[in-house]
């Protein structure tokens, strides 16, 4: 017969021994992992933590604040959670911001307009960029290097200033209108600035390097003998292009198009400086909700919905990026 009061003591001892043993095993495992992976873990951990804190967590906050109400305070939104009474967590979700986006046709038409403008500009960028990438890929070594440099160089100079350059060219008494008037091609200046046309030009111009570089890096890898084989078998140059070169360059086309399309949807500077007052883009609306109306919750809701539109293209882009790098690695090993 055991003494029932002794049992807790006995159990307590057992628990302590067990904890000590488990701690020992755990610690030795930690040490082992740390020894083999210390450097590596740190290397992977630092950027992961940084991006988690400053890139991923902020998106959750945008979602949270899109459910808050706008108030005249600092910061200008309500808390959606607060402790009421003892331990009762009160959750006050406010869907009014999303309803506003649905009800007011301004927002819907701005979303659709942004997607339309970004899509059309991507196609034009592809049309301008493809011959350039092909030409660079076909050039000889030194010329290729110089041509590549020349594509990259404008990308390194200020984006804002490159957009600004087009104001001087496109406005009513600007360079292009003056040129066309002197040539006698037009009688009156064409109102080109503050139109969709100007936005297209601005996007194509600013994002051209993003299209040319991925295109070039797929085109330059295409085996020249494939094209020669096609031509030997009687393929005309144009059909050799459509049947051999273009299909092989599709990964570059995808990457380049996404690199233009996705940021163009949320573009602010180009529609603001070059676009017309009636063609609204969603990036500009988000900006004015935030800075002019100081309605942070509505601005956040706009951002959340914009992200929903962009998730699919972003996943496509990430896949293409991963695939390109994998193939690169395999091809070289």
């Amino acid at each position: 017969m055991r003494d029932p009061t002794a049992a807790p003591q006995y159990q307590g001892l057992l628990v302590r021994v067990w904890r000590w043993l488990a701690g020992l095993v755990f610690w030795s495992r930690v040490q082992g992992i740390a020894r083999t992976l210390r450097g590596r873990m740190l290397v992977a951990l630092v950027p992961t933590l940084w991006l988690l804190l400053f890139f991923l967590v902020p998106f959750l906050l945008v979602f949270k604040i899109s459910l808050a109400e706008s108030v005249l305070a600092q910061p200008p939104f309500t808390a959606i959670m607060h402790w009421s009474g003892e331990a009762l967590l009160e959750l006050r979700l406010n869907l009014a911001n999303y309803l506003l986006l649905l009800e007011d046709t301004l927002y819907i038409s701005a979303y659709l307009n942004s997607i339309r403008i970004a899509a059309i500009s991507s196609v034009f960028t592809l049309l301008v960029g493809y011959p350039m990438a092909l030409g660079i890929a076909r050039a000889r070594n030194t010329a290729r290097l110089i041509l590549l440099m020349l594509v990259i160089l404008p990308f390194w100079t200020s984006f804002l200033i490159r957009v600004y350059a087009w104001i001087g060219i496109l406005k009513n008494n600007g360079l292009l209108n003056n040129l066309l008037l002197t040539l006698g091609l037009i009688k009156q200046p064409l109102p080109m600035l503050h139109s969709d046309f100007a936005v297209f030009v601005g996007i194509v111009y600013s994002y051209l390097p993003f299209m040319v570089l991925p295109l070039y890096s797929t085109l330059v890898k295409i085996d020249q003998s494939l094209i020669e084989a096609a031509e030997d078998l009687g393929c005309r140059p144009l059909s050799a292009f459509w049947k051999v070169i273009f299909p092989l360059s599709l990964p570059g086309v995808t990457a380049g198009t996404m690199l233009v399309f996705i940021p163009a949807v949320g573009e602010f500077v180009i529609p603001d400086l070059l676009g017309g007052p009636d063609s609204l883009m969603i990036g500009k609306i988000l900006w004015s909700e935030f800075f002019t109306n100081r309605d942070w919750p509505v601005a956040s809701a706009i951002a959340v919905v914009m992200l929903l539109f962009l998730v699919v293209p972003m996943v496509i882009f990430q896949r293409s990026q991963e695939k390109a790098l994998d193939e690169d690695g395999r091809g070289r090993r």
């Binding site: 890139f55 996705i262 949320g266 573009e267 988000l286 900006w287 962009l310 882009f317």
Partner: peptide
Amino acid sequence: LLAGMISAPLVMPDVIIGLSILLL
């Protein structure tokens, strides 16, 4: 996760990055 967080900022519209990090 890391690969996704690396490729997302390359294409993410500036207005979204700016707004989200300000809220943070």
